[in-house]
Nucleic acid binder design. Structure first.
Lengths: 259, 259
DNA sequence: ATAATAGTGTCTATTAGACAATATCCT
DNA sequence: AGGATATTGTCTAATAGACACTATTAT
């Protein structure tokens, strides 16, 4: 449990010590190396919905530990010493997201989820992971696993996924991500991130049904979104969605149209 | 922006390398020192409500940087190398909370808020902070700033606090904590964490009013909590709360009584 | 024509909110 | 007695949900 001074107890906090009078000198005197530091990583739960099935992107590990097991995409936050301290945590998540999906980060919803910091969660060394979750539109999903590294990245249906079989504590992370989107879909606009640019009300309803794991009355659901239309949150788009039965009108989400 | 290998590009990820066949040997071969690591800290926004005034606990910094400025209580997560990797992030937050308040951690609500990881947020070195927020019951608040270190820790009214004057990015952290409790008070039980063990409906209403910054109709508010009583979330307690006018009945929160 | 699903209408129960009226206690 | 606030009651509007009904298209 030791962590404070590593070598020389350099009198850091003792008030008796001679504090450099100007701040610049103090910064130089600060000895960051005196403390054992953890590695910090980002992990991302990347969701999409295709054919009314909630999926997430996993990577098969090629190295120990958990070799062969499926894991969340992730990586270490790039840190540097000196004036440039490296990349923001948020930037690390964005970077890994686009590296993994080969998609424009601007078109993908990304948000911090929770930081998992239990000792021992990575057997190699102390790793604290800032978990995120992302939402990929279904029309973009087919392009994702098509990159050069297509071999080891793949969409997995949440339905038939064994969370306990995932590497590290990633099952726990996925569990929390699921709870988060189930909660947020009710009071935010995240559902529109899981639907194509133009969508029909029944398509949107399907997103809610998949995320919440329950069915919604078509009539009542439609009325609920009719209110969004009068509020300017969504607007009618040209054309119709052709299905096996009666075609449906298509709509478009108006960014920042809440009020 | 450099961060990958530090000295020897030891062929970590090259598939051509001879991977130790058993996992134990691999773990030993892992060179954690090859990467520059950040420091990881916890910071805690400790709230209480006294006399219908939302307050938070701040500490006056005695050292550079931001010497003399007010800052959130916090500290580094204790990390170790070897089999014992140190303390959990959650444990670090709990530890700092009780060190700072001298109260039983079991009687204080504590939850992770968000991780602040912008490069440069601490001018000394790269520090990533896992921010938390805590809620202290008003009857315990007076004991907090009474410890030995009473000199530099004090409750500050949020009302008259200049967030931009806080050290580091702590103003931003407080801002997010405020938004969090304003949102959560509507759909969770956190209001009961800011009220004594026994409380009257008007007292509880005051908590809502202070957090949300709006007033509630006494009659309507009362009916809203009468439903909680029939649901078993709260129950009547003996005695009455004596005030300057008509005394009110007192209630008690039933933990886990939601259903 | 029929199946299937989009879309509309109707009714009921629940809840939020405005607001009036009454009860109870302190001073 | 008078002031203040707890507590109860009443009414209206908004919303959720159940459910029946109509419209439109593919086959």
């Amino acid at each position: 449990m030791a962590t404070r001074p590593k070598k020389k107890r350099s009198s850091k906090k003792s008030k008796a010590r001679a504090v450099p009078s100007d701040e610049a000198a103090f910064l130089e005197a600060y000895r960051a190396e005196d403390f054992v530091r953890p590695s910090v990583a980002v992990d991302i739960v990347i969701f999409t919905i295709v054919d009314a099935d909630l999926k997430l992107l996993l990577i098969q590990r090629e190295e120990h530990p958990f070799r062969g097991a499926w894991a969340l995409p992730g990586g270490f936050v790039r840190v540097a010493e000196g004036a440039d301290q490296g990349e923001d945590v948020e930037a690390a998540a964005t970077r890994r997201l686009s590296e993994e999906t080969h998609l424009d980060p601007g078109s993908i919803f990304l948000e911090q989820l929770y930081t998992f910091g239990k000792a021992g969660r990575d057997p190699r060394t102390r790793v604290i992971s800032v978990a995120h979750y992302a939402l990929v539109r279904p029309d973009l999903a087919p392009f994702v696993a098509a990159g050069e590294h297509a071999s080891d990245a793949a969409w997995h249906s949440v339905e038939q996924l064994d969370l306990d079989a995932l590497a590290f504590d990633h099952g726990e992370i996925v569990q929390m991500a699921l709870e988060r989107i189930r909660g947020k879909v009710d009071y935010t606009d995240i559902a529109f991130e899981l639907v194509p640019q133009t969508f029909s009300i029944p398509e949107l309803r399907s997103v809610y049904e998949v995320i919440k794991g329950q069915s919604y009355d078509p009539g009542n659901f439609r009325r609920r979104f009719h209110r969004m239309q009068t509020d300017g949150i969504i607007e009618k788009a040209p054309g119709k969605r052709i299905t096996a039965s009666k075609p449906a009108s298509v709509y478009r989400f108006v960014r920042g149209g809440e009020r």
